[in-house]
């Protein structure tokens, strides 16, 4: 669509001698020549499309046979790389999710309690922070934190390196913090107001009511959503691969590259990654549902 050169100061039309993918031009179907393909397409019989479909379907098998690289070999490659992508990769997914959850929970609980403060000066900033981080794309937060945090800090002579995964922890703990903050606020608000009134009528202060009456009742209600957020966070850790943090997906890609980028490796490697995440998150999801059911009965 652009009329001008995309590079300021260069007036000639963009051109290159390298093979490039031309953009699809949907409007300029003016001349009859441009319609040739459409006419040819319209004149083809139906059986030809069926034939083409069959050819496409058998293509992977044909290439595998022609390439001499079988699925067995692909899985052997996976088996060879397994220790590498698990210990150097998935291990970091778990570590990142664990620490991001830990920090996110600590900050989130504080922020959640601030959100129900009777003092406007505490409540409103807490609400703003919560809403900002709750409604931002996780990837953008990750980008900002990874690029904004220094990769090493110097204290005089000592230099402390900050590994990428630590930055990923900070990046991912922000949206977790905001969501846990909402979980805490929601749990506190879900306690019937009669509990506050009963405690008030027994001369409890607000602090005592909150810590001795309300929060012990909230605790159970917060566990299922908290676990749910942990599962979501774990499944979001592969986002870090876009920033070069070493984790399961990054290392899977590196392994595939080391195996000459064979397309047959895509399904085994990424399918395995899927399976690992599923095996890790599914029990959490089941436990969440079980706990939700158990806590739902008693009020």
């Amino acid at each position: 669509m652009y009329k001008k050169s995309p590079i300021p100061g260069i007036q000639t039309a963009p051109s290159t001698d390298l093979p490039v993918l031309k953009p699809f031009n949907a409007v300029a179907a003016g001349s009859a020549e441009d319609l040739l393909f459409s006419r040819w397409l319209a004149s083809t019989p139906v059986w030809m499309w069926l034939l083409l479909g069959v050819l496409i379907l058998i293509w992977p098998g044909v290439t595998a046979a022609a390439g001499g690289y079988t699925m067995t070999q692909a899985f052997e490659a996976l088996w060879r790389w397994l220790p590498f992508i698990m210990t150097g990769g998935f291990f970091y997914n778990v570590i990142i999710s664990f620490f991001a959850m830990l920090l996110g929970t600590i900050f989130g609980v504080v922020l959640g309690l601030m959100q129900i403060s009777p003092a406007k000066l505490i409540r409103i900033p807490a609400q703003i922070v919560t809403q900002i981080f709750r409604n931002s794309p996780w990837l953008v937060l990750l980008f900002i934190v990874l690029l904004a945090l220094p990769y090493e800090i110097e204290f005089g002579d000592t230099i402390i390196r900050i590994p990428d995964w630590v930055k990923a922890v900070f990046g991912l703990c922000l949206p977790i913090m905001a969501n846990i903050s909402e979980v805490v606020r929601g749990a506190i608000n879900s306690v019937p107001s009669g509990q506050w009134e009963a405690a008030n009528s027994l001369a409890y202060t607000r602090q005592q009511t909150l810590w001795q009456i309300i929060l012990p009742q909230c605790f159970k209600r917060m566990i299922p959503p908290w676990m749910n957020w942990y599962a979501i966070l774990t499944m979001a850790t592969p986002l870090c691969t876009l920033l070069g943090v070493e984790e399961l997906i990054t290392l899977s890609r590196q392994a595939i590259e080391a195996e000459n980028n064979r397309p047959e490796l895509l399904v085994p490697f990424y399918g395995f990654a899927l399976l690992v995440f599923f095996a890790y998150c599914y029990p959490i999801a089941r436990a969440t549902i079980a706990l939700e059911r158990r806590f739902a009965v008693k009020l």
């Binding site: 019937p192 009669g194 509990q195 009134e197 009963a198 405690a199 008030n200 009528s201 027994l202 001369a203 202060t205 009456i213 012990p216 009742q217 008693k298 009020l299």
Partner: peptide
């Protein structure tokens, strides 16, 4: 001083409002 007042006045509610935990 609400606390001093409420130490003198006990209250029972329609919905009991016992602490369930």
């Amino acid at each position: 001083n609400k606390l001093e007042l409420r130490k003198k006045v006990g209250m029972v509610f329609q919905q009991y409002n016992l602490f369930p935990h």
